[in-house]
Amino acid sequence: MRRTDPRLQIMTEAIERLIPGAVPAEMIVYVIEKLADGGQHEWSGRPKSLAEKLFTALYGRPRAAEQSSPLAQAEDAKRRRDLGAELDILMDAGAALASAPWYPARAGDLVHVHYEAGGLSDASGETYRISAGADGFLSMQLLCHTLPDTEDLDGLVGCFAIEDDPDPLTDLWFEAGPHRLTIVRDGRPVHIGGAR
Rank of each mutant, 00 (worst) to 15 (best):
M1R: 02
R2P: 04
D5N: 08
T12Q: 10
T12G: 04
E13G: 09
E13C: 08
E16M: 03
L18A: 15
I19P: 02
I19K: 14
G21E: 10
P24L: 01
V29D: 05
V29A: 01
I32S: 14
E33R: 15
L35F: 10
L35E: 11
L35V: 09
D37G: 14
G39D: 01
G39N: 02
Q40D: 08
P47G: 02
P47C: 13
S49P: 07
S49F: 04
L54C: 07
F55M: 04
F55V: 05
A57V: 00
R61A: 09
R61F: 09
R61W: 06
P62T: 05
R63G: 13
S69F: 07
P70I: 03
P70E: 00
P70D: 04
L71A: 11
Q73L: 03
D76L: 15
A77F: 05
R80F: 00
R81H: 11
D82H: 01
D82V: 03
L83T: 15
L83F: 10
G84Q: 08
E86S: 12
I89F: 05
D92E: 14
A93N: 02
A96R: 07
A96V: 00
L97E: 00
A98F: 02
S99N: 12
W102I: 09
Y103A: 11
Y103D: 06
P104I: 09
A105Q: 04
R106A: 06
R106E: 15
A107L: 08
G108D: 10
D109A: 02
L110R: 12
H112W: 03
E116R: 05
E116C: 13
G118I: 09
G118C: 13
G119T: 07
L120F: 13
L120R: 08
L120Y: 10
S121A: 10
A123D: 12
S124N: 10
S124M: 03
E126N: 12
E126T: 09
E126V: 15
Y128H: 07
R129T: 04
R129C: 02
D135F: 06
S139Q: 07
L142K: 06
L142E: 06
C144G: 11
L147R: 08
P148K: 03
T150K: 11
T150H: 09
E151M: 14
E151L: 15
D152P: 00
D152N: 09
D152L: 15
G155Q: 06
G155A: 13
V157I: 14
V157G: 01
F160N: 11
I162S: 10
E163P: 08
E163H: 12
D164G: 01
D164W: 05
D165R: 13
D165A: 14
P166D: 12
P166A: 03
D167E: 12
P168W: 00
L169N: 02
D171W: 12
L172I: 00
W173C: 04
E175C: 12
E175N: 10
G177F: 01
G177K: 01
H179F: 10
R180A: 14
L181A: 05
L181C: 09
L181S: 05
L181M: 01
T182C: 06
I183T: 06
V184S: 03
G187M: 03
R188Q: 12
V190R: 03
V190Q: 06
V190P: 07
H191A: 03
I192N: 11
I192R: 14
G194R: 15
R196K: 07
